[in-house]
Amino acid sequence: MTAKCPSVGEQEKLVEWLNLNAKASGPIYMQLAERMRAAILSGHFDSTSPLPPERELSALIGVSRTTVRKSIDVLVAEGLLDQRHGSGTYVIPRVEQRLWGLRSFSQEIRARGMNPSSVVLEKTVAQPASEEMLALGLGSEARVLRYNRLRLADDVPMAIERVTIEHSLIGDIAEIGDSLYETLAQRGRPPVRALQRISADTVSPRDAELLSVRPDSAVLVLERRSYTADGTVLEFTRSTYRADRYDFIVELTMQENGVDLVRV
């Protein structure tokens, strides 16, 4: 696929989105990279079509091709753009997960028209560690399933999911399908609610290799405890998400007596 010439209307929008401030300080290519970054994160560029070629962008914005190229290089290094030989430069699509409703990774990815898949990193039954006993409310005599997977969307690594669940709730681990929640529902133990905590961190060297990101990349760490209808703690999961590919969205509404969080 080659880049098509933008229409007059598209050209006007590009100029508006990427308009540079003549009074701003700093290198012009960094200013342009900042404007392009804002346009990408705001959803102004279609990830299924290539950006206009460097020559067209430089003519529209009024800067040199070298400036455009250096700006694109910055955003490629940040993981926002992907340069494909013979095809063009594309915006890398991001997954947005709204923090309301309880859905599995597979359900979330399918809802966005992508194909989820997994690479199993660990699938063992063992005695629980102290952190696992505390999280699941278990005694030292219990057995837990540790189910660690690399989660992918359209074959692109998105997250590393490390799940701990009481072994008696899952049964034969050989019968676990791609979606753990669907397997639990088939066992009559579906999760009905969950508590989540999200924090930022720097990826570990091992996780960087699995996620195909730089060792110093930022990641989002999600801890989840899910519960069955009778209040039993069902799972303890710690997942590491690529911050350059995944967004968590919370919707807030204003109420008469202050801010009310309506979707979590």
Rank of each mutant, 00 (worst) to 15 (best):
residue 141 E to T: 11
residue 36 M to R: 10
residue 55 R to S: 06
residue 112 R to D: 03
residue 171 G to S: 04
residue 160 I to H: 00
residue 44 H to V: 03
residue 51 L to E: 02
residue 52 P to F: 08
residue 152 L to V: 04
residue 110 R to S: 09
residue 109 I to F: 01
residue 171 G to I: 01
residue 139 G to D: 10
residue 127 Q to K: 15
residue 76 V to E: 15
residue 207 D to N: 14
residue 237 T to Q: 08
residue 205 P to H: 07
residue 45 F to A: 07
residue 136 L to V: 00
residue 1 M to R: 14
residue 105 F to T: 03
residue 155 D to P: 08
residue 170 I to A: 02
residue 5 C to W: 14
residue 16 E to K: 15
residue 60 L to H: 06
residue 175 E to M: 12
residue 84 R to W: 03
residue 102 L to A: 07
residue 150 L to M: 07
residue 119 V to L: 12
residue 198 I to V: 13
residue 158 M to N: 01
residue 1 M to K: 14
residue 95 V to I: 14
residue 62 G to T: 04
residue 166 E to T: 00
residue 90 Y to G: 02
residue 191 P to K: 04
residue 124 T to C: 09
residue 60 L to A: 05
residue 102 L to M: 13
residue 16 E to P: 05
residue 195 L to E: 12
residue 237 T to V: 11
residue 255 Q to K: 13
residue 250 V to I: 12
residue 12 E to F: 14
residue 42 S to L: 10
residue 25 S to V: 10
residue 51 L to H: 00
residue 113 G to F: 06
residue 239 S to G: 01
residue 264 V to I: 08
residue 38 A to V: 10
residue 82 D to L: 14
residue 106 S to T: 14
residue 153 A to M: 01
residue 86 G to P: 01
residue 264 V to S: 12
residue 252 L to V: 09
residue 106 S to K: 12
residue 71 S to L: 04
residue 21 N to S: 12
residue 64 S to H: 01
residue 236 F to S: 09
residue 17 W to G: 00
residue 26 G to N: 02
residue 180 L to V: 00
residue 138 L to N: 01
residue 61 I to A: 05
residue 65 R to L: 00
residue 37 R to S: 11
residue 80 L to I: 06
residue 162 R to A: 06
residue 130 S to C: 06
residue 181 Y to K: 06
residue 231 G to C: 11
residue 123 K to L: 09
residue 224 R to E: 03
residue 218 A to W: 09
residue 93 P to E: 05
residue 104 S to G: 01
residue 34 E to M: 11
residue 3 A to K: 11
residue 2 T to E: 12
residue 115 N to W: 11
residue 7 S to E: 03
residue 264 V to D: 05
residue 105 F to W: 14
residue 93 P to S: 05
residue 107 Q to W: 10
residue 73 D to A: 15
residue 253 T to E: 13
residue 164 T to V: 15
residue 177 G to D: 03
residue 232 T to W: 10
residue 247 D to R: 15
residue 36 M to N: 08
residue 36 M to Q: 09
residue 150 L to H: 06
residue 130 S to Q: 15
residue 196 Q to T: 10
residue 257 N to P: 00
residue 122 E to A: 14
residue 201 D to L: 09
residue 114 M to T: 00
residue 230 D to L: 10
residue 151 R to I: 06
residue 235 E to S: 03
residue 54 E to Y: 13
residue 115 N to G: 06
residue 141 E to W: 13
residue 22 A to F: 08
residue 35 R to V: 00
residue 153 A to L: 04
residue 224 R to G: 00
residue 153 A to G: 04
residue 214 R to S: 07
residue 205 P to D: 07
